Simulated assay, not measured.
Amino acid sequence: MIDGLVGGRLYGEAQIRTGQNGKRFVTCKVRATTGDGDTLFVNVIAFDDDVQTGLLALSDADSVALSGALTPKVWTDKNGLVKPALDMVAHGLLTAYDVRRKRSVMTGQPAEQDGGDPDEAL
Rank of each mutant, 00 (worst) to 15 (best):
M1F: 09
G7T: 13
G7D: 01
G7C: 09
R9H: 07
Y11Q: 05
I16V: 15
T18P: 01
Q20I: 01
N21Q: 08
G22H: 00
G22P: 04
K23T: 03
R24I: 11
R24T: 15
V26C: 12
T27G: 14
T27F: 12
T27Y: 11
K29D: 11
V30I: 15
G35T: 12
D36N: 09
D36P: 02
D38P: 02
D38N: 15
L40K: 10
V44N: 05
I45K: 15
I45W: 00
A46N: 09
D48Y: 00
D49Q: 10
G54H: 03
G54V: 02
L56W: 06
S59Q: 13
D60I: 01
L66P: 02
L66T: 05
G68D: 05
A69R: 15
L70G: 08
P72W: 02
V74D: 05
W75C: 07
L81C: 12
D87N: 14
D87S: 11
A96V: 00
Y97D: 06
D98R: 10
D98I: 04
D98Y: 05
D98H: 15
R100D: 12
R101A: 11
S104E: 13
V105W: 14
T107Y: 09
T107F: 07
G108L: 07
Q109R: 12
D114C: 04
D119N: 14
E120R: 08
A121R: 03
A121G: 00
